[in-house]
Design a protein around this nucleic acid. Structure first.
Length: 104
DNA sequence: TTTATGGCTGTCA
DNA sequence: ATGACAGCCATAA
């Protein structure tokens, strides 16, 4: 029986991110106990249902920006959600990780 | 099983 | 600062 997957771990970490803060894929993977699985984190969020209650928008890449994905619409969606949480973007469409990156 | 793809990251020039 | 490269590994066909 294998009812537990890596994704559940990832989701737990993402849901642990406080409002108004963000975390990188690599960071989430590391906290979840899956170092080096940064891409899988992205994959986990990709297959994640919208009504799962997971703040996937709080997860950004190492550059503190929004990565390009298969569906360009989501990029806008994520930015809007982040701004709604009080996170501001720079001119380069990036977030100040020094200020907003979540550190447990 | 092998191949290809993917919401990444770190290092090097 | 920006661009190119290799490494990490799960999922789908």
């Amino acid at each position: 029986m294998k009812a537990f997957r890596e994704y559940d771990l990832i989701y737990s970490v993402v849901m642990s991110i406080p409002r108004g803060m963000v975390a990188t894929y690599g960071q989430v993977a590391e906290i979840a106990g899956l170092p080096g699985h940064a891409r899988q984190v992205g994959y986990a969020l990709k297959v994640l249902p919208d009504d799962s209650g997971v703040p996937w928008h709080r997860v950004v890449n190492a550059k503190g920006g929004i990565s390009k994905r298969l569906a360009p619409n989501y990029e806008q969606e994520q930015r809007i959600l982040l701004e709604a949480e009080g996170i501001e973007f720079n001119r380069d469409d990036r977030i100040s990780l020094e200020k907003y990156q979540w550190t447990p």
